[in-house]
Simulated assay, not measured.
Amino acid sequence: MKEELKKIREYLMTGVSYMIPIVVIGGVLIAFSIALSGVKAGEGAVVTNPMLKSMMDIGVAAFSMMVPVLAGFIAFGIADRPGIAPGLVGGVLANNLKAGFLGGIVAGFIAGYTARWIKGWKVHKNLRPIMPIFVIPLLTSLIVGFLMIYVIGSPISSLMTSLTNTLKSMSTGNAVVLALIMGAMIAFDMGGPVNKVAFMFAAAMIGEGVVTIMGPVAVAICIPPLGMGVATLLNKKKYTKAEQEAGIGAIAMGLIGITEGAIPFAAADPLRVIPSIMTGSAVGAAIAAIGKVGDHAPHGGPIVLPVVDNRLMFIVAVIVGVIVTALMVNALKKNVEVVEE
């Protein structure tokens, strides 16, 4: 059992190692384009300069590849080259179904283990040459595709509707409790469907004239990448060389409110990272709610400070949340076994 868990982590790390450059490219380009354009009250991050718009488009294109690359190379780690194409297909479907990086991880493992199973079939010698380039990718893609569309997609849709209704029912109650829940949701899948439910609800409330829901959410948005970036600086022994480099990019993304900067860390070690970032974001959001922090723009991170009410409490909430995340994750994580050169 222990050996199998170690292999699963190796498969995850294979996907993460190929995904990190995609996250860095996408996140940093988007971050710079927003930083140089600024945020408009009520509109969020608005990029109008043609060069900066092109920079953002390139970043968005890179980000769109993040989940497929993660899924494709998890499958590659399990089944070698025959797993790549089905994994990529599963990753694209995870994107289309709004299943986020967690859906991509599921797709990658389904594709990898299915492809490896089909590789083990006893077939006629005349079929062997086309197995890795035709039979395995085709059958595996069909299996992954049908499972993603008919088994995984429907529960995700139902869950999102239920979460939205729950948030609506809570919006007239305790602001701190609502902030705790929304902060945890923002961090849970870092740009995935659960994150989007909380974000879109907060953004919609701005239109209703209520900015004190977006305030805590704006704080929660930046804590996962900032917290993980700071964690890599506090204790390098717990992170691979690639993760340490990703930590610098994560800090840049966090400053501009791009939660996805924490995804490489969560994908590599979800059981330790996700609870840590959820706790940090929940704590930060709760402090922001107590301080009645308001955000007039549907965006997050320090970049929105010009349109934030009670900026001091916003900064305090972010700092506390980042410290909680960094200390918690480093307390939970073990030193890496092999330090990359």
Rank of each mutant, 00 (worst) to 15 (best):
H124M: 11
L127R: 04
L127D: 03
R128V: 14
R128K: 14
R128N: 10
M131Y: 06
P132F: 10
I133S: 12
I136P: 02
L138S: 14
L142E: 06
I143L: 14
I143Q: 03
G145N: 00
G145L: 07
L147H: 02
L147R: 02
M148E: 10
I149L: 15
I149P: 07
V151I: 15
I152M: 12
S154E: 11
P155H: 11
I156W: 06
S157F: 07
L159A: 15
T161L: 13
N165S: 15
N165A: 15
T166H: 13
T166E: 12
K168T: 15
K168V: 14
T172H: 11
T172A: 13
G173I: 12
A175Y: 10
A175E: 13
L180Y: 05
M182H: 06
M182T: 06
M185T: 05
M185L: 02
M190C: 01
G191N: 04
P193S: 13
V194F: 07
K196H: 08
V197H: 00
M200R: 01
F201S: 06
F201I: 01
M205R: 12
M205Q: 14
M205S: 11
I206L: 14
E208S: 13
E208K: 15
G209M: 10
G209W: 06
I213Y: 13
M214W: 09
C222N: 01
C222D: 00
P225W: 05
L226M: 12
L226R: 01
G229T: 04
V230P: 03
T232M: 04
L233F: 12
L233C: 04
L234S: 02
L234V: 06
N235H: 09
K238Y: 08
K238H: 15
T240E: 13
T240G: 11
K241N: 11
K241F: 03
K241P: 04
E243Y: 00
Q244L: 10
A246C: 12
G249C: 09
A250T: 06
M253K: 13
M253W: 11
L255V: 13
G257M: 08
E260S: 07
A262Q: 10
F265G: 08
F265D: 07
F265L: 05
F265V: 02
